[in-house]
Design a protein around this nucleic acid. Structure first.
Lengths: 351, 351
DNA sequence: CGTTATTATGCTCTTTGCGAGCATTTCTTG
DNA sequence: CAAGAAATGCTCGCAAAGAGCATAATAACG
């Protein structure tokens, strides 16, 4: 059954829904799931590629492209991932790196006629969204639909003060279960550090820590699905951000964390850019990922001084003012410097 | 069979050898291997914990503590790892973090009566070696027995100029196989960047890249085992560093890379230190990990200024000179700073 | 007991990188 | 042609980091 998903042919929507619902019992489905968080920047908005399936127990419809790893068919993990993404979305991945392997305990508790995944291996892929008119399936969704509290483009998002902070404080008041005594930090401290409460600085890289805190506190829908809400009855549903299938939102959180960290010390922004671009477009892309706290002139000095780009000699008019020089990525820096990157400073602790 | 290895009882040496030989077909052995690179610093020497088994096809006897992940028995991946380490070595792990998941293709080709591992999940653990008189099995082995080219404590190791460089240059001369055309860099460039040839700076974090390059070039014993030597006949065996069981040397290389990188931006050195220590001992530990290129006074200023340590009020005599103040780690920094660490500068490009 | 070697520790000087702002150029728009 | 907008060039100042000098406190040894 489901042979179509094992091959490279295009899956019908129904088959895809079955896959998302967990019914992927293949011959050699060993319970190792491959999941791709595919990131791009569209109109200065950071987006991820989501495929849609039938609503699950908590109403989640979005999933990351994914499928089981089949060692008979795939020589490498990354190869298997690329083939799944290709068959499910039509996209040929460029840059990809492994993120993390999660024990997928949530799915073990589900009623499953098929082999459940034991572990999920998450991958981060970066791509230029505009170049893919070949997308056969899936939609580009803003990061911030899944993680509204991460959107600091217009200052501190209201959802933190209005929804998250009071509910986290209530959670911190309740005693922690004794089953986790080795937890090094108190609940209140974790909440303060993750979400920058009480004047603590916001760290844009702590995306995963924040999501896991909300999950543990029962404030995201996924907590309900995984049975964590048994001891925590809420009159209203958590509903902080759009939920995803399985543990995919956790994987996407990991992808955002990694992207935000790595863009600072490796030249990965250029995977998100077309071949030619202006420095301002480059800056806007970085700011879409990290938040808008860059000084224009200094950014130019940094990028040019590091030898990351070279002018093409052409200019781009119609920018509303003086035409901007076009640049391209100097791939040779990879041969010169050990670890070049777009080093941007920490934001000036905006609370 | 092999129930002893599944439980927490101490395994007999014979059982351990069977485990290392791959005969671990348990009821639910899903082919997911857990592997622990346990790192410590003993007498200013960076070491990893190795368990010994029967020599395999290439004569490798050392292995990292490892075992299959059994979702029935282990709630989490890390929990499974801790239980395997405990049963095989008697060690109770402290700090541990996941490194990477490798597709363990090498083992698939072996003649296997048991379920082969499909993937290996590598973990890094940091510990204080002196505190473990409870070690029931395993030996602390210097990193540099496995990776002699990484030992820059007395300047550039001779093995690079004498063994590695000429053989890599010979390898770079030969044409790359057409099966990997998407390889972005030429062989010669990869060799130059990895091993700092032709005046390129040495990057101490590229431990994994260097090992994988040697593996691909057929210069480490593991290449022979995995059948890569078919097209590459060497009159003498590669013998660059001590080989390890399965892909364990690759996992150890990943662990060293991660340790060297992380020690610079997170306060993980203190996992390698006893409760109280002098600043010079701390510096020597950092230098054991990174290489000896620290300025004593500046190191003190850095560590004290960052609030990473606090004086205990006592001093340690018998240091051969003026007594040194004792310090302890200030755990509170984790609550204050977003990302404290022992920020050391790049070595002054010693070639 | 005094001298020397050794280590710890405090302090200063210089260089570099980066945050921030001013000024100038070159386009579009009306 | 004037005004506005965006790109680009340049400078100032602070803070962190690299490097070295100076001093303090012990052990070893005559």
């Amino acid at each position: 059954m489901n042979m179509e998903l094992s091959g490279r042919r295009k899956p019908s929507p129904e088959k895809l829904h079955q896959a998302i619902a967990g019914d992927t019992a293949d011959n050699a489905s060993l319970g190792i799931g491959l999941n791709a968080a595919i990131v791009a920047v569209l109109d200065n908005e950071p987006v991820a590629l989501a495929v849609r399936g039938e609503p699950d127990a908590i109403g989640a419809t979005d999933a990351l492209p994914f499928g089981p790893f089949n060692p008979r068919e795939h020589r490498t993990l990354e190869g298997g991932l690329r083939s799944w993404v290709q068959s499910q979305t039509g996209l040929e991945l460029g840059y990809a790196e492994q993120l993390y392997t999660f024990a997928d305990s949530g799915r073990l508790t589900e009623s499953s006629s098929a082999t459940p995944n034991v572990v999920s291996i998450g991958y981060l892929a970066l791509t230029v969204a505009t170049a893919h008119h070949s997308l056969t399936n899936g939609v580009w969704r803003s990061w911030y639909q899944y993680f509204p509290w991460e959107d600091w483009r217009r200052g501190r998002p209201e959802i933190i003060a209005r929804e998250i902070e009071p509910r986290l404080r209530a959670w911190a008041e309740r005693p922690a279960p004794v089953t986790t005594p080795q937890r090094p930090l108190a609940r209140a401290d974790r909440a303060r550090i993750c979400f920058g409460l009480d004047g603590t600085a916001w760290d844009e890289e702590k995306v995963l820590e924040r999501f896991e805190l909300l999950y543990e506190a029962g404030l995201v829908d996924e907590s309900l699905r995984d049975g964590r809400s048994a001891a925590q009855v809420w009159t209203e549903r958590p509903k902080l951000g759009l939920p995803m299938h399985s543990d995919h939102r956790r994987i996407l959180a990991t992808a955002i964390s990694r992207t935000r960290a790595k863009i600072k010390y490796r030249p990965v922004v250029f995977e998100l850019m077309p071949d030619e671009f202006t420095l301002y477009e480059l800056q806007k892309t970085v700011e879409a990922i990290l938040g808008p706290h860059l000084h224009k002139q200094n950014f130019r000095r940094l990028v040019e001084g590091a030898g990351l780009v070279e002018p093409t000699g052409e200019v781009k008019t119609r920018t509303g003012g003086r035409p901007a020089k076009l640049f391209r990525f100097r791939r040779e820096v990879l041969l010169e410097r050990p670890a070049p990157g777009v080093r941007v400073s920490a934001p000036p602790s905006r609370t």
